[in-house]
Design a protein around this nucleic acid. Structure first.
Lengths: 100, 100
DNA sequence: AAGATATATCGGTTTTTCCCGAAATCCCAA
DNA sequence: TTGGGATTTCGGGAAAAACCGATATATCTT
């Protein structure tokens, strides 16, 4: 758990918004045929459309959040799904109240 | 409580170290005549010496941490003392486990 | 095998952050 | 009231982050 990497990942407005959206995908995204919000999460394209940035930028942001351990990635066919890693947020909350 | 501002303040190695040092000033700094670690905290000069960066840089970093609400500032004579605002860390920990 | 769709990666430009030295401010003591 | 010590503020160069468009890769369909 690299604190600095985590805080850097959280130091961006769009990335914070993405984390918010992924807290309740059914409220923020339209479910499509291939989607399974609960099981897999949301695919890059849907997040990109909502973020209003280019595909390459959003893809990069999701990688940053994933490398920090805050998101989990699943590849299914041509889609890559991302969902929150709730354990990481739990751990981070505790870390702040004890270690930092 | 501006989340983004807080995370930006935490996105720097030296600033994270400063927060660590201020958790236990008596372990990290030498108490001097004018010092009152418990009451007021540690003055800029001592933090600067330990950080190994220039005075102006450290002063700026302390301001960033203070504006984010993570440090409290007290001016006494010619010295400015900084200490942690523990309530802010409590609140941030909770925020991460609920809001983010 | 070829085209379409979804995503990742690669260069590059703009903006922000890092960090410095110099100058300004603020306070104390002689 | 002048000088010295502590700190802040200011201007700027170097490094990192924010984006972008173009290209590459991977998968599905036909």
């Amino acid at each position: 758990m690299d604190q600095l990497e985590i805080f850097k990942a959280l130091s961006n407005k769009t990335r914070l918004e993405i984390l918010q959206w992924l807290k309740a995908p059914e409220q923020h995204f339209e479910q499509q045929d291939h989607d399974d919000f609960e099981g897999q999460g949301v695919c890059v394209g849907q997040i990109q459309a909502k973020a209003g940035l280019t595909q390459s930028t959003v893809s990069e942001y999701l990688t940053i959040l994933q490398r920090a351990g805050l998101l989990q990635q699943t590849r299914v066919g041509q889609w890559t799904y991302y969902k929150r890693n709730e354990e990481a947020f739990e751990a981070l909350g505790k870390l702040i109240q004890t270690d930092i």
